[in-house]
């Protein structure tokens, strides 16, 4: 493997791991559920996507043929992450969890 490819792979892997870590830090540190939802659904998905792209590149270059398993996992994760986040937000709204945001303005009709 030539040095340029190795550098690209290393950069992708490091970026992916750092974004995964940032997502989990957001999950652990933020102060209410609705802000906590942002970390894993955006940062972690991007991080895992980056790792999977690095892996697809590596196995396509070292083994004969193109490796498509990773692309399948990436596609599946990118489709399912917003759906599960939406369902969790709906569950949290249903349970009326504490939120940092102000309540929307009430109508003064009654």
């Amino acid at each position: 493997m030539n040095p340029a490819t190795e550098l690209l792979l290393s950069a992708l892997i490091l970026l992916g791991a750092v974004f995964t870590l940032i997502g989990s830090i957001g999950l652990a540190r933020l102060r209410d559920f609705y802000t906590r939802l942002h970390g894993p659904t955006k940062a972690s998905t991007l991080g895992v996507g980056s790792l999977l792209i690095a892996s697809a590149l590596y196995f396509s270059l070292t083994e004969p043929g193109i490796s498509l398993h990773e692309v399948l996992v990436t596609l599946f994760l990118f489709i399912t992450a917003p759906v599960s986040a939406h369902l969790l937000a709906k569950a949290a709204l249903h349970l009326k969890l504490h939120s940092l945001a102000r309540r929307p303005e009430q109508n003064n009709e009654d």
């Binding site: 892997i13 992916g16 791991a17 995964t20 997502g23 989990s24 999950l27 559920f33 906590r36 939802l37 970390g39 894993p40 972690s44 998905t45 991080g47 895992v48 790792l51 999977l52 690095a54 892996s55 590596y58 990773e70 996992v73 994760l77 992450a81 599960s84 969790l88 569950a91 949290a92 349970l95 969890l97």
Partner: peptide
């Protein structure tokens, strides 16, 4: 503190497990 928090943590746990598995494969 709440149940959706725990479910979100489980969700993140499996995404991170996929990342770890990919790194192990590499």
């Amino acid at each position: 503190p709440s149940l959706p928090d725990r479910i979100l943590a489980l969700d993140t746990l499996y995404v991170n497990a996929i990342a770890l598995l990919v790194l192990f494969g590499l």
